[in-house]
Simulated assay, not measured.
Amino acid sequence: MSNKLALREFQTRLAQRLQAARAQVQTARWLAVECAGLGVLLPLRHASEIFSPIELTSVPYTQPWLLGVANLRGGLHAVVDLGQFMGLRDQAPAPGQGHLVSLHPDLNINCSLWVDRLLGLRSDEQLKTLPTPPGERPHFAVGEREDEQGRRWQQIDLDLLSRFEPFLNIVARVV
């Protein structure tokens, strides 16, 4: 009898904790990463999973920023060096370093971004929006933020990036 009562109390406490967890506002909206020294914010709603570096299969006749393809959980994903794609570096990163951030399946593109470092989660409360300076900026780079320590962060809209024509055009010109 006491076991049934203890089980019922446990179930009640568990149900209350689950309800409280659902009621809490999720404040983290951004995955903070670093690419070639630049702080980048990726929206959590469009980032799917984080993977440790794995062996990539190279693909001939592609842009230099397309590092290859990887088998991630049984799916074939193109792996793009975000730092090189954004023009922050000329060469691919050293093998075995960095992380892969896969794009959410809702974006309908089997792609993962190679980033140098993972720097954690950020919320809007931790970041202030900076005025966007005039100049050349791709439309997927939607704004800049600054944290309490004064570090500047570039916001990337992964939905816009996944539809950006130069991002989709992976074939290199053969001369």
Rank of each mutant, 00 (worst) to 15 (best):
L127P: 00
W65V: 05
G83Y: 07
I170Y: 03
A6H: 10
L14H: 14
E136K: 15
V25H: 03
S48C: 11
R13G: 03
T27Y: 04
F10L: 15
L130P: 01
L103M: 13
Y61D: 13
P60I: 00
V40D: 08
N108R: 14
V79I: 14
T27W: 02
F167G: 05
T12N: 13
G68K: 00
L103I: 06
L42Q: 06
K128T: 12
F10W: 11
P133A: 06
P133D: 08
Q155K: 12
G98Y: 01
T129F: 04
A28I: 00
A47T: 09
E34Q: 14
L127K: 03
I156A: 04
R22M: 08
G68C: 01
V80F: 00
S123L: 00
D147F: 07
L42R: 05
G96Q: 09
A6V: 06
Q19I: 03
L56C: 01
G98H: 04
L5I: 14
C35T: 13
L88H: 07
A23P: 07
W30F: 07
L100R: 09
T62H: 08
F85A: 02
G83R: 02
H77K: 05
R73C: 05
L44S: 04
H99W: 08
F85D: 06
V174L: 11
R13N: 11
R8A: 15
G143I: 01
I54Y: 00
N108Y: 11
P60G: 04
P64M: 03
